[in-house]
Design a protein around this nucleic acid. Sequence first.
RNA 1: GCCGGGGUGGUGAAAUCGGAAAACACGAUGGAUUCAAAAUCCAUUGCUCGCAAGAGCUUGAGGGUUCGAGUCCCUCCCCCGGCACCA
Length: 841
Amino acid sequence: MDYNPNKIEKRWQKFWERLEIFEAKDFSKKPKKYILIEFPYPSGEGLHVGHCRPYIALDIVSRKRRMEDFNVLFPMGWDAFGLPTENYAIKTGIHPKIATRKNTVNFKRQQKNLGFSFDWTREINTTDPSYYKWTQWIFVQLFKKGLAYKAKMPINWCSSCKIGLANEEVIDGRCERCGEKVVKKEKEQWLLKITDYAERLIDDLEKVDYPERVKTLEKDWIGRSKGYEIKFQVSNSKFKEKRFINVFTTRIDTIFGATYLVVAPEHTILEKLKKEIENWKTVERYIEKSKRKTDKERISEIKNKTGIKLKGIRVLNPATNKEIPIFVADYVLMHYGTGAIMSVPCHDKRDFDFAKSYNLPIIKVIKSEEKEKRPGFTLSSESYKEVYEGEGILVNSKRFNGMKSETARERIADWLAKKKLAKKSVHYKLRDWIFSRQRYWGEPIPMVKCEKCGWLALPEKELPLKLPNVKEYKPTEKGESPLAKIGKWVGTKCPKCDGPAKRETDVMPNWAGSNWYYLRYCDPKNDENLASPKLLGYWMPVDWYNGGMEHTTLHLLYSRFIYKFLWDIGTIPKFLSPEPYKKRTSHGIILGEGGIKMSKSKGNVISPDNVIKQYGADTLRVYEMFMGPFNQSIAWDTKGVKGVRRFLDKVWKLSNQFINLSQSKSQQSVSDLEKLLQKTIKKVSEDIEALKFNTAVSSLMEFSNAWQKNIKGLKKKNFKDFLKILSPFAPHLAEELYQKFKVQSSKRKATTKSSKVSKLKSIFKEKWPKYDIKLIKEEKIVLIIEINGKVRDKIKVKKEISEEEAKKIALNSPKIKKWLQAKKIKKTIFLKNKLINFVII
RNA sequence: GCCGGGGUGGUGAAAUCGGAAAACACGAUGGAUUCAAAAUCCAUUGCUCGCAAGAGCUUGAGGGUUCGAGUCCCUCCCCCGGCACCA
């Protein structure tokens, strides 16, 4: 009988479901493992093969863990709020709820066809009111702690999606979803104070096992700079009280070279000093012009910096005590640091560019030790034509001359601190998270605005605040959520004074539901809590979380923030780690055939449905693991799929032949094949842990190639072990062969003993095999014989032979003799069990 | 510009404690089977020279360390990802 996956795969999927073997058991005595993959957005297009790669990989890990006797939680759910479904509703008038239901049914069907070992009893959906009740509850808690606030601010606005975007959602000045240019727009928005957690979000990265590049990406995104805030006094102010401008710098060691000061156009000091600025009109015009500039325009001016000198006022450099001029220039950003800088043109590229165009003095205060070592260097030859941004030795800095940058920083800071002119300061690039979307298909923000009492959170007993039905899904012309059009819903009573009040009509961004979903899997049906502390205590933290690299500064960062918040307020038991994910790994993207990105518009999307139909789910699974390194992007190749199918066909054929073999009396001797199997067990076991699935599969292939040459070379136990290590990759095939083998064996026994057929026990209830270390050890090794480091012969020898013996054997080789003719051995290098190298002249 | 990852056959790739470069697979070529094709099986397959035995060359380029370098060090080039006037 030929291998026909379509005939067997459905049967075993149902079998596993009936046996409930993939269900996680709360409070089981077995040690737990929580294995998580990012839950998908159920789009109308269905799963594509790229989605499957991480699912297959972590399914393999989960299956192995169960066989290693862990209580495994491997759940799945739906991150179903979001724009595509809403846009679909705008186009077709079909309610997003209905479209979502249809899509999730389809996604689930597709996943089931791949034989994933998810615990479906814990399925969740972010659009389910019993779920988003808790998403809203978290918002209310954030509000109560002052971490959610409403502010009018310029936001990134996509005029095509009619939606405000978080910084993280703007790619190259364009909308992440539709590619439309993003413009700035003043809008009242809900924001979450993620900046309060910036420090912990960096520091706690030391507690987790993430790939280094993920950590770096998060750190760079948060962008911590440690430095000093320094006060520069406005020297000739007509005001009686002293006025200061605060600057932030990481290079206080260069302060003696600060020859002017620059403030951002939005800086409030400008308004305050208005009367003293003699050229206020010009300055005002410049400010207006800057405001109108888009981010892109600002960036395009990097080389050509503009600014205006503020006439009539000057500041004192606190180090030199000299008066220096002030400029307003838009190369200084208001939202970073203090919105003002001290400019050190000799040691900062940007300041240098600006100083050159405005003819400002450039004073060298740091000399590079390295540069001066270069031949022909003299201090005078190095005029001030060059910027030096590195560290070095201080010059032109009075009593700090000769100090290294590092020491100088501390000394100068101490000195200025004593005069109350400097203090330590830390700044972050990270900005607060814009949490409002003027859209329909999202969680309503459970807030009410009372004319008297201001913004109030809905009482918790009124949650969930359900998303009302609307007829028209389009945002209003003013860019408000379609919810704003439902007068009856918007008008409500103030929870505090009972007076008239209005509901917030913005909804939450699509990241809201995924912030905390992994917590819900621990206790998916709880109505009292987002999850019970006991169950959180049992299952958390997530032991292994795999997801896309593209989520590093979005979902991953956001969810770490929300977890930390929930930990702070005690929703998460305090004995748990302040980090939700112990280990994070990432998968590479699957590209279309020829290496182009798969997309609907290019028409090169490959659906797992078709692959399964043609080759079977197991082939798809093994192929996706075999195609290349897991964390690397890789192009789909139909020929490669065929090659994997050939491998499974071979396993099928060989196994059936083996099963039908009338077993001779169990052999005593250990065959080479058996030894190879031990190595294969070791390799597969280790490679799964290291996510090296491609080489795990290739070792299985190597084994089957060897087996083909000696079908009888295996014992029954070996055959079972082989099926076990194959089973996470090709679960259906392995289960089929395993059951067939058991039936065949019991039939044989039945002739002599009772005819009772044992009750079916899944291969996934078996124990993961251990390899026999004694059998892996070889008695013989191949000794490599080199001459001057080049391989000239290889001879099989006994293990552990001495240098003397090896030399004797090597010198006996005709090939080596030829090479050594009339040559003198200068040196011999011997590496036990590896090689012998003769160095000749 | 800065940070991170990478560059190995016709292709996807193996091999990173410095010790056999190219495992496994795809493709290609030849053969067996077949009326024929598909499928399957067997053989060959880094490049150059050679009838062969064999020899030389080869991991982006160039240098270095070493008995020995894909692997370590220096300089440079290219590709991918991220950030980008962040003081």
